[in-house]
Simulated assay, not measured.
Amino acid sequence: MRASLTRRACATALLLTSMLTPAVAAAARPGGPEAQSERAVSARLLGERTVPYKLDFQGTTVGGLSGVDRNRCTGEYVFISDDRSALQPARFYTARLDVDADGVHAVDFTGTHPFRQADGSVYPPPSLGDGKAVDPEEIRVDPRTCRYWWAQEGDRPRAAGAPVIQPSVQFASPTGAYLGQLRLPQNYEVTLEERGPRRNQAIEAITFGAHGALLTSAVEGPLLQDGPVPDLEHGALVRVTQQTRTGGVLRQFAYPIEKIFAESDPNSPWGPDTGVPSLLAFPDDPDRYLVLERTWVAGAGYRIRLYDATTRGATDVRTVDSLAGRPVVPMSKTLVADFDTLGLSTVDNTEGMTWGPDLPSGERSLILVSDDNFAEDAVTQIVALAVR
């Protein structure tokens, strides 16, 4: 918070915040949602590495890497591809990263496996129209078993009569075998009414906390019933949910995402795209997260921001049917890094992050990956930051 604010002023501002609409409440916090705080972490660039475009590995096309996690059992990293079985079956990769205080020296892929359905078959492409396709977005290694938990967004169909594919968090073996799935909050369900996640804005972020006792998820954008998506004037609220390993919903919160940073090219057929593609729990504080916000605007490119966020003091919105116009207190957040200021060779579609090894400086490394969407004008970029 700003040093000029007195304790009394802070208390008064927070009281007023609780009486405002969610979007206004987020902006009305003392110092604003991006205000610096004494407890916030800081980040600096260690280095980066780019994976060659359409790298062929074991007969698959490396790309679309939208999530990453470190496997404590092997020391390797696991990357999930968001290929919806269009090029090859929906899959993940394992890799060894040579990362230290001097940067990212090498990215060496060591294996790949398709995700399998309960009957052992791979997932079909959406073009089959059988309602069994998946849209992989995030992967985490279970800190207790080293098995994989992976999230996929499902699909809200554009056309009437097309199948609804529900988002899910599934469990898989290290070779991709189906082991079950987590029961999700009811309001994460895609319905044919104007409720639930928007198309392509469902679960894109999951993380383990409390040494594996908790799983926290976030939907990428606001639920349909929670209000409009961000624009040039207003941000929005997305839901963040803490659950037990067996699916019990413990708490749910509203996280404030930023407004759109620039006007779109009027000649582009694509509107702005913004949301939360990844969040990461602090190892010793299950109520505190690093949250990645990713925004793309036609003609302006990407803006990637990393925040230090906490659920402390935020309203539990499990029983709040709609956040639109409701006086809820959202999660508070502090800006850690704007990628435009890190000195990267390019700022692209960064979607995944995980903790890396500790550094001799006492800092901890943070590994991030960008999703190239299998496009020649984008990059698969592995970035390492030092976080203190």
Rank of each mutant, 00 (worst) to 15 (best):
S332P: 00
V347Q: 03
T12S: 15
L215W: 04
F92A: 03
A11V: 13
V320W: 08
L250S: 10
D100L: 07
V62C: 12
F208V: 06
R326W: 12
V68I: 08
A25I: 02
Q201F: 09
T175E: 15
A43Q: 04
M353L: 15
Y302F: 13
F171N: 11
G247I: 02
R199W: 06
Q58W: 08
G131W: 09
T112K: 10
E189R: 11
L184K: 00
P228T: 09
R29M: 13
L55M: 13
Y53D: 14
P277A: 12
V329G: 02
H113K: 11
T6H: 08
Q252V: 00
E233N: 11
H211Y: 11
A300Y: 06
D155C: 07
P228R: 09
P157N: 05
S365R: 07
V134A: 03
T246F: 09
T315H: 04
G129S: 06
D100R: 10
F253E: 02
C146P: 04
R49W: 15
V104Y: 05
T6V: 10
A254Y: 00
F57K: 00
A202Y: 00
A28E: 12
R91N: 11
Q117N: 11
A3N: 12
D119P: 05
A177F: 05
Y188S: 00
V62R: 03
I206E: 01
G64Y: 07
P286I: 09
V24M: 11
V24Y: 11
G325A: 06
L359K: 02
E48V: 11
L292Q: 03
